[in-house]
Design a protein around this nucleic acid. Structure first.
Length: 424
RNA sequence: GGAGAGAUGGCUGAGUGGUCGAAGGCGCUCGACUGGAAAUCGAGUAGACGGGUAAAAACCUGUCUCGAGGGUUCAAAUCCCUCUCUCUCCGCCA
């Protein structure tokens, strides 16, 4: 959520930045309503002031044994007027809030300007894509042949965009989760959290999924509950409506969760394989920081995610998303894209964002910079560290051999119970 | 699912209709004491939204907030209704 005071103070600047993100604004409407709101507020507060004073006066008079009937009738009448004005105000404030909740975050000044993903800027590359002396197969082909991925039976159970992992495939998924969590906990200093996979609508609004992106999520029928689309939601909302101690910041949190996405708009893209699923696993990184440290922490978080791929020996590049490609809540985002030999291109495997105070404002997450100092909104960051299913796909494609077997990356072998190659 | 109890500031905990944004304690800040510290003593210490007001800060001032929403009343933390959550007991269950 943007700061209403900021919108009022420099609407042109905000409109400009929103335009960079490719969204229409509705700012004029907001400003008009804000104007009316302040007028109403002054009027109703005056009446309330009268009522408060008169009520006290009545109390005094009654104690003195008088019956101030005239004054009581007067206050009662004012009470009616107050009720009407309050109703008007509430309706107006509801509409303003609704509007505010649909405005995306502003891009940070360091974000490259552009319209879509073709304008993203490559920041760095790591690793050399392997030269194959045979035609590399797609991961779904490899997985099916090795009988570790089963798409047909998944369709029988759940329909399209689900996968059954079997044998070494299931083990590989679990190994990756453990490997990633161990790395972030033991080496990068994150605290491991195991959150609920279902959360309420307040959480979804707090991190920005609601109200705009309700169609992308699975909602439980007849309940105010959603399946988490990412662990970012429960992790960030852990501290909703709290005032944190500055000394405790930054908080580093990591969690494995399954992630559930309806993604109504994505039909036709990545229909084969495990790149785009209704259910997938992810190890997520979340940081809650002060306003001063958030950009430094974004760089560190991105490096933490990159290290997963380095240790797995998977070539990748880091891309700075341009203004037009930024997500709703993000002020700045780095995508990490892993090399996929069959596609012969880099594909997103992690996305690390600084949301600044956008989510903190929605979720009301604050901190006290020092005793005596006023509370401030925290900055929140989130990043995949990293998407597990896509990592499986990347390992299958990058580590495949001419006979269709797949070598297990060295760091994973202990997690695979000593298994070094997946063969038929 | 059934029965009961509860939800108050950063934390704890009093408050059953009026001068209560809220006693006491803890914590924290400042001051005194001290060579310094501890202990002790004194003072201070919620948030949001407006107005004065202008870029901000400081200051003054108003309104709202005692789980959420509604109601009664001149006046609600306090009385009534609905909901949410927590705890205890019973049932069921991995």
């Amino acid at each position: 959520m943007l700061d209403p005071k900021q919108i009022r103070a420099n609407p042109e600047m905000i409109a400009q930045k929103l335009a960079l993100k490719g969204t229409g604004t509705g700012l004029e409407e907001f400003l008009n309503m804000d104007e009316v709101r302040r007028r109403l507020l002054v009027a109703v507060e005056e009446k309330k002031n009268f009522r408060n004073r008169a009520s006290q006066e009545i109390g005094r008079l009654k104690k003195a044994g008088e019956e101030p009937e005239g004054l009581m009738a007067q206050v009662k009448a004012v009470g009616q007027e107050i009720k009407e004005l309050d109703d008007q105000l509430r309706a107006l404030e509801d509409r303003m809030k609704e509007l505010l909740l649909t405005l995306p975050n502003l891009p940070h000044d360091s974000v490259p300007i552009g319209a879509g993903d073709e304008d993203n800027v490559e920041v760095r590359r790591w690793g050399e894509p392997r030269e194959f002396d045979f035609s590399p197969l797609p991961h779904w082909e490899l997985g099916t042949r090795l009988d570790i991925l089963d798409f047909e039976r998944a369709a029988k159970l759940s329909g399209a965009r689900f996968t059954v992992y079997k044998g070494a495939g299931a083990r590989l998924e679990r190994a990756l989760v453990n490997f990633m969590l161990d790395l972030h906990v033991e080496k990068h200093g994150y605290r491991e959290i195991f959150p609920p996979f279902m959360v309420n609508a307040d959480c979804m609004q707090g991190t920005g999924q609601l109200p705009k992106f309700a169609d992308d999520m699975f909602k439980l029928e007849g309940r105010d509950m959603y399946l988490v689309p990412t662990a970012e939601v429960p992790l960030t909302n852990l501290y909703r409506d709290e005032i944190l101690n500055a000394a405790d910041l930054p908080l580093y949190l990591t969690a494995y969760t399954a992630c559930f996405r309806a993604e109504a708009g994505s039909h036709g893209r990545d229909t084969r394989g495990i790149i785009r699923q209704h259910q997938f696993n992810k190890v997520e990184l979340v940081k809650i920081t002060t306003r001063e440290q958030s950009y430094e922490e974004l760089e560190k978080m991105t490096a933490d995610a990159e290290e997963v791929l380095k240790l797995l020996g998977l070539p990748y590049r880091v891309v700075a998303l341009c203004t037009g490609d930024l997500g709703f809540s993000a002020a700045k985002t780095y995508d990490i894209e892993v090399w996929m030999p069959y596609y012969s291109e880099y594909r997103e495997i992690s996305s690390c964002s600084n949301c600044e105070d956008f989510q903190a404002r929605r979720a009301n997450i604050r901190y006290r910079p020092g005793n005596k100092e006023k509370v401030q909104y925290c900055h929140t960051l989130n990043g995949s560290g990293v998407a597990v299913g896509r990592t499986v796909a990347a390992i299958l494609e990058n580590y495949q051999q001419a006979d269709g077997s797949v070598v297990i990356p060295k760091v994973l072998v202990p997690y695979m119970g000593g298994l070094e190659v997946i063969t038929m």
